[in-house]
Amino acid sequence: MNVSRRYFMILVPAAAVAWESVLAGTPEDSPNYKMQDHWWGMLIDTPKCIGCGNCVRACEAENDVPEGFFRTWVERYHVTDENMENPEVISPEGGKHGFPAAKEDEGKYFFVPKMCNHCADSPCTQVCPVGATFVSPDGVVLIDQSYCLGCAYCVQACPYGCRYINPEKHSAEKCTLCYHRITKGLTTACCENCPTGARQLVDLKNPKDPIHAFLKTHSVQVLKPQMATGAKAFYNELDGSVR
């Protein structure tokens, strides 16, 4: 076979490209889920929260959260002064079993569900010395359980207090935004079980997601915006006393 210099110059780059695609292999095993098409977050519609604790119980059941630790919890604020300086905040057992009845009183009451904010520029992933925690390509802050040393740097770094060290596994754990559910086309356990729709999983890369219209028409803010964490837990009508 006679290969001219001209054909050789065409064949070599073509073979290189082909070899490159062989090396790259199959990108993902779940064929219907493409990471690059998603950028997950959460909408928390605070006026809708009734403090029933269904989200906390659902999270615990879905993710085997150890007793006394929480990946999501609900706080009840009671603000009586005009300056909003000293709110009384309670969260008995993370609000898992609801809250004691409040009597008609001066001031205002409201519930604030808390969870990992799945920050785009998360402080917790920056401090991990071994690369065990990271922001996934679809915007979820996750922990590689087989790689975590349990040094708890990330637990200290999270400005929202969303991480804990599992007392049995001695590795850091946190909300995974139910990664095993959202990659299967389901919503998170907390969103699935919220009876009033106070929590909604949002996909910021999906142009059809109602979050885009919601953000444009409502008073939405994130927690601790001054920390520039790129938090993606959006709180609707959040009171100024919430820290």
Binding site: E28, T133, S136, L142, D144, K184, T187
Partner: peptide, 24 residues
Amino acid sequence: QYGHYRGAALKDLADRPVKYAGHQ
């Protein structure tokens, strides 16, 4: 593979079984 972490960890996390089937 995707950054300074083990790319296969994503699959480990995604492969866990669900407990709430979902209303669908």
